[in-house]
Simulated scan of single mutants.
Amino acid sequence: MICALLIFQTSDLPAPLGQLSPWLDHLTMPRDEVYALLAAQRHRRFIKTHTPLDGIPIDPRVTYIVTARHPLDLAVSLYHHTTNVDIARMSELTGNQLPTEATALRKTLRDWLLAWIDYDTDPRKNLDSLPGVMWHLGDAWARRDQPNVLLVHYDDLSRDLEGQMRRLAGLLEIAVPEPAWPGLVRAATFERMRAGADRFVPGDGIIKNSTSFFRRGRPGAADEILTDEEMAGYRARVTSLAPPDLLAWLHSPGEAA
């Protein structure tokens, strides 16, 4: 959404966000249709992907923006997101037979979180696992000094949305007239995004409730659920998966910066 606002410089976007920024690896549209949609675009392209940088072509003409979040906040969001996905519709669009009942529905959030922390898997085969998340972010962290790789933290966006938007505009070399900034910043807030959820949530009927897609939008949910001992267990686990400087940035982005 921030990229869309910077490129079009208006909150009145010319099309739903999913059309302006196709989710390239979502597999809910035939590949040729996605490529045709991109080929027809005449504005600066901004493409969404959930694939880590080591799984996509790296082109010096492209800027890669990697958005990170505290892993436990990400996990809580994933739990609720899973319960909001229409599995039957997803199976129909992708052609893949998926479980008819979301795994998250079988456990309380606390039990699911503890299992997510402890789950040991090949990160390349399960990108939504803790090892998968740290594989993705660790690779991006290792590339952070490359001129066309930008790392953005969700908590920084929440705490200083205007400052982060201005930073991105500068790095993307997009000039924004000063009078336009207040409206663009308002349009990127969680509250405005939630109010216009139908235009911002991926389409095709996969999400059961668009408004619920924007559930909370603030950090710290896991701290409200897990005990001190359980949080210590998380820290021990994640320390084995990532370097200290990356973890410092993920857990306390403002302080690490």
Rank of each mutant, 00 (worst) to 15 (best):
T63M: 14
R159D: 05
A180I: 07
L171E: 12
L27T: 03
W181G: 12
A40N: 06
A15C: 07
R144G: 08
T49G: 01
D160G: 00
A104G: 12
T211L: 06
R124E: 15
L130K: 03
L78K: 06
A187E: 01
R31H: 08
E92L: 14
L53R: 10
A232W: 13
Y35F: 08
W141F: 10
E162C: 11
S129D: 11
R144P: 09
L72F: 10
F8W: 14
R42D: 14
G254V: 02
L105A: 15
G220Y: 12
P14H: 06
A236I: 05
I56Y: 00
E33C: 02
R124Q: 13
V66L: 11
A236N: 15
L98G: 13
E229R: 11
P219G: 13
L246T: 04
L130T: 12
T63Q: 08
V201M: 00
F200W: 05
T108L: 02
S77M: 07
T67D: 11
P243Y: 11
V176Y: 05
W112F: 14
I58Y: 04
E173T: 08
D156Y: 03
L161D: 02
R89S: 07
P244F: 10
A15V: 07
R89Q: 14
A248S: 14
K48L: 08
K107V: 00
L109I: 11
K107C: 04
W112D: 08
T227A: 15
R192Q: 13
G220A: 08
L105Q: 10
Q9T: 08
P202N: 04
P52A: 07
R199V: 04
L109D: 09
A140W: 07
G170Q: 15
R194P: 04
L168P: 06
G170I: 13
S240Y: 01
A15W: 05
R166E: 12
I206L: 01
D155G: 03
L172S: 03
R199D: 13
G95N: 03
S252W: 03
L172D: 01
L38I: 15
L241Y: 14
P179L: 05
Q146W: 08
P60Q: 06
A221I: 09
S212R: 10
A257V: 12
A242G: 11
Q41S: 08
L157K: 03
F200R: 05
W135H: 15
G205R: 01
Y35V: 07
L17H: 00
D25P: 00
D120W: 04
T94H: 00
T83F: 00
V238P: 01
A257Y: 03
A15I: 01
A142P: 09
A4F: 02
P147F: 00
P60G: 10
A75C: 13
R159L: 06
G170N: 15
S129M: 14
R194E: 07
S91L: 04
L171Y: 00
F200D: 06
I7A: 05
